[in-house]
């Protein structure tokens, strides 16, 4: 066992972990933030996506000990029910999810994309979200939502 320090969504946590413990399990079990999901544990589905030091990572493929000292952001950080991030709002407006299980990955990936490239073309959108599996929507509504988020962000800049 060893002690690690994580800053999760702005709060400092000191956690004692088994060196083999995955970051996703620490975020869900020790930190208690269950918005990050486990879908495959093989790095393929993206439901466990979190931001580690401002880069999206699949937290099932990261040992918690390896993230010692890191700054972790999860879906819970993105926005609240009263104050949704524009990406969340666009997903709501465009019916871009059904069961919601893939949302942590989809939302954080799209947020990361738009932070880096405020006006991505469809190819960039598809490339960004292709690491995240969704079995409900068929992806079209997600692409529509990303386009809407781009429009709303642009509109916001203009006002």
């Amino acid at each position: 066992m060893r002690n690690i320090r994580l800053n999760v969504n702005g709060e400092d946590h000191e956690v004692e972990v088994d060196p083999r413990r995955l970051l996703v399990h620490v975020v869900r079990e020790e930190v208690g933030l269950t918005g990050t999901h486990v879908g495959c544990l093989t790095g393929d589905c993206g439901a466990c996506t979190v931001m580690v030091d401002d880069r999206s990572v699949k937290s099932c493929s990261v040992l918690a000990a390896g993230a010692d000292g890191a700054c972790v952001r999860t879906i819970e950080y993105l926005g609240t029910e009263e104050d949704l991030d524009p990406v969340q709002q666009a997903f709501l407006d465009e019916f871009a999810f059904q069961c919601g299980y893939c949302l942590p990955g989809m939302l954080l990936t799209v947020r990361e994309l738009l932070d880096a490239e405020p006006d991505p073309d469809d190819a960039a959108i598809l490339q960004a979200i292709s690491g995240n599996l969704c079995r409900c929507t068929g992806y079209g509504p997600i692409v529509r939502a990303v386009r809407a988020a781009v429009r709303s962000t642009r509109g916001g800049e203009g006002s």
Binding site: E76, E81, L92, F97, G100
Partner: peptide, 11 residues
């Protein structure tokens, strides 16, 4: 809109 939407979107 989906009634559980905001809860799903915010984790």
């Amino acid at each position: 809109k989906k009634r559980d939407g905001k809860a799903l979107l915010t984790g």
